[in-house]
Design a binder for these strands. Structure first.
Lengths: 247, 247
DNA sequence: GACGCCCTTTGACAGAGGTCAATGCATGGG
DNA sequence: CCCATGCATTGACCTCTGTCAAAGGGCGTC
């Protein structure tokens, strides 16, 4: 592989983002769930040549709120957060994305929120201009993107009900149910949360102390079990569902 | 005018929704802002034949949360709210739509939130199945829909920051600025809010009493003026902007 | 295997906003 | 033009959640 070529590509990327090598769409983990799923083999190849794979370490930020919007990407592996914040530093996480999800803002000049890796992650990254051009010529891609964006909007609006109208107890219960649905539990029924208490607080619009207190009370009531910092076992799902809707 | 034809159309519609007659896309108020703007004259005619115009009275609900998703529509005139609620009746308004906006959930079987007219309104209404089919064959339409949905998502996510992290004072100030941007003031600089205090509360995720108290304090501070129930004059925009970001 | 860091938990207290209740006052109908 | 109705305002009080501070305990490192 050509060293100079690699370094030239790196120059346009945020610090520490490292391109991967030896990519092949046919073997891609998310090939039939990502937005490229409906493309023909040749179209997918063409799209693939526009972009490239990059690896991220947990904690790295790929895009910053308000920045010029240079790239979009498919998430191949890992979990990332989308966040906005007020001038004085209060943060609200506005979305969490998983493998096969799409990130970035196509057809727009500004990035409306930051994107930060919560776990180590791999992306399939495209320069926005090139991606936009490709998308305009491929209706299947735009259709997939539209479906995905409509789903995102539905989920985001459902989350507004949580932020605006639910109590801390209901918020935490709803969050745990949501994670239970998204993440696979291990053989002991334990889920490994990809988020710290602070990040959970930033998702739910409450403080870290309130998250902690609610979790402890749920544990005391026998509804959940806490295993270390990141582990949770959802013991009584029915109870959790009841608490998620009415305190 | 054919009476029987009209009544047959009415049968498929929510109670009290009355079809209009004499429609012509060429004279449509929103023709160059709605999603149909990029269609050729003949395509627009074809789309027009799929749908029809209906009038709504303030307070009428067009779609209910969780219902089978039968229709989508362009808003021709008026203001409507999108809302979800918890089992025990707490409501959160998740969006407010204006003339030229699009409502309903294309490509999905369920309506994720209710849609209710805040003012008298006129819609250009399409059966969802027929609209979906038409959209699949018209990339320009899907592109417009995608752009609009991406914008909606950006705005919705910005609103999450308000719901999760802003104080009552900041929420009310942000709301007033937003209305000031959207609605044209009359010659006295007075805006006529299309929302009751309760609805404002449901948008901001606070109670009606808190909205009222904040408004009164803003008035006492000389930042705004209150004229009757629905009138507001934004006196000190700079102050309002400062309050919107940091209490 | 022990140590130290930092995340998390717990406690005490305060305050923003919710709740309940009464009064005020636009607005539309008679 | 006046009255009645329902929305909006105001007040008193209380609770939930935030704030500040300290102690506890995983987890990575040496």
């Amino acid at each position: 592989m050509n060293m100079q070529f690699d370094m030239a590509q790196n120059a346009a990327l945020p610090t520490m983002v490292r391109p991967c090598v030896g990519h092949n769409c046919e073997r891609c983990d998310v090939r039939d769930r990502a937005i490229c799923a409906d493309l023909s083999a040749s179209d997918r190849d063409a799209l693939s040549r526009i972009g490239r794979r990059v690896s991220l370490k947990a904690g790295q930020t790929v895009m910053w709120e308000g920045d010029d919007n240079m790239v979009v990407a498919n998430v191949v592996e890992g979990t990332l957060k989308l966040a906005t914040s007020t001038g004085d530093g209060r943060e609200q996480i506005v979305g969490v994305v998983y493998a096969s999800d799409f990130i970035g803002r196509p057809f727009g000049a500004r990035t409306p929120h930051s994107v930060t890796a919560l776990t180590d992650a791999r992306l399939c990254l495209f320069p926005r201009g090139a991606f936009d051009g490709f998308a305009r010529d491929h209706a299947e891609l735009q259709h997939r993107l539209l479906q995905r964006t409509l789903d995102d909007l539905d989920r985001t609006r459902a989350w507004m009900l949580l932020l605006g109208r639910k109590t801390a107890r209901e918020k935490v219960a709803t969050f745990l149910l949501d994670m239970g649905r998204r993440l696979r539990a291990d053989r002991d029924g334990v889920i490994d949360l990809p988020l710290s208490r602070q990040q959970i607080a930033d998702i739910l619009g409450i403080t870290i102390e309130t998250v902690s207190r609610q979790m402890t009370e749920l544990k005391r009531g026998g509804t959940i079990d806490l295993i270390g910092r990141r582990g949770v076992r959802l013991v009584d799902m029915a109870e959790l569902e009841a608490l998620a809707e009415a305190g």
